[in-house]
């Protein structure tokens, strides 16, 4: 019973915090550009205002265009329920299978790209296809990295993998470090940050499909996208950096877990943010080379696992 409570609490907490995280990100970027930047709470104001606006759809669009925002948000909420954040093990174990998570991320991606085509806009369409391409390029390395991590941990459940790695009893430490690195890189591409994507410029890039959204729909998609970023980072934390999360379900342990989780999250987003602002955009054509390099690292980890180190 307490697990269900934790799942609900962490999901609500995440929803409440998401605009703050993206707001801090924008603030930091402005500071690094030596701009004044928006207030930290700007994203809350944006969402509230968008919610009051008129919802505009293109004239040829169908129900897919209308369904996508709530579907994206809903899928992210389902993922949030099962992701171990405060706790070491997943509060809802049947939602924490790595294969399920990878394929569940494909559901919003499917509709995201579909809605882009549905809108009839060419910019949205190009963005939709690119979003799909990123999925195609990232998924093999992600799967291989997780495959190897799951094999050394003896389970495909995020919580169990985290518990094995967290107890430092893995038989293949080098393997875990290498595939953890590969997975981190794959996650970074998924985050949709520079050098692979530029969230503010909404034309022709991955975020392109957003250009035909407005009002409450746009609010929901924006919310869902920030939520996705946090979830992907939490995913990495849960498997490869589970240290400090609550092993026992006591109030003290959970409180420590929460604090540690927030610190880890802040640290990772800080690093990402610094990195993001230190690089320039890579040409979309060259994305393939970099993701294949990530795949190469994962292959390396795989061979190390076979070697048994």
């Amino acid at each position: 019973m307490i697990e269900i409570l934790i799942a609900c609490v962490q999901t609500l907490l995440l929803v409440a915090l998401t605009p703050l995280v993206s707001g801090v990100g924008r603030f930091m970027r402005a500071k690094m550009h030596t701009r004044k930047g928006p207030p930290i709470l700007q994203d809350y104001y944006d969402l509230a205002k968008l919610f009051k606006r008129q919802d505009i759809h293109t004239k040829d669009s169908s129900f897919v265009h209308r369904l996508m925002p709530p579907l994206f948000l809903g899928t992210m909420l389902v993922l949030a329920l099962g992701m171990p954040m405060l706790t070491r093990l997943s509060p809802v174990p049947f939602l924490a299978d790595v294969i399920l998570i990878i394929y569940l991320l494909a559901l919003p991606r499917f509709f995201f790209a579909l809605s882009a085509i549905d809108s009839g806009s060419s910019y949205a369409g190009v963005g939709g296809i690119r979003e799909l391409m990123v999925g195609v390029l990232v998924e093999p390395s992600m799967m291989l990295a997780l495959f190897v991590a799951a094999l050394s941990a003896g389970s495909t459940n995020v919580g169990v993998m985290g518990a094995t790695i967290g107890s430092l009893s893995v038989a293949h430490p080098v393997t875990i470090i290498i595939v953890g690195f590969a997975f981190a890189l794959a996650c970074y591409v998924e985050l949709g940050k520079l050098p692979y994507d530029l969230a503010e410029a909404e034309q022709e890039l991955q975020e392109g499909p957003l250009s035909e959204y407005s009002g409450p729909s746009l609010a929901m998609v924006k919310m869902a996208m920030s939520l996705k970023q946090i979830l992907v980072v939490s995913w990495f934390i849960a498997i490869f950096l589970p240290f400090g999360s609550a092993v026992e379900l006591t109030v003290v342990a959970l409180a420590i877990g929460l604090v540690v989780y927030l610190v880890k999250l802040a640290l990772i987003f800080f690093i990402c943010s610094v990195f993001e602002n230190a690089v320039s955009r890579v040409r979309f054509k060259l994305l393939g080379r970099q993701t294949w390099a990530v795949f190469g690292i994962a292959v390396f980890g795989f061979v190390f696992w076979i070697l048994g180190i």
Partner: peptide, 26 residues
């Protein structure tokens, strides 16, 4: 969980829906 955002939107969003616009083409 897909219904939740839909419901929230139905209750709170007051802007109405307009679906007659052409797609944006720069």
């Amino acid at each position: 969980l897909i219904l939740v955002p839909l419901l929230i939107r139905m209750v709170f969003a007051r802007g109405g829906v307009d679906s007659t616009k052409e797609p944006w083409a720069c």
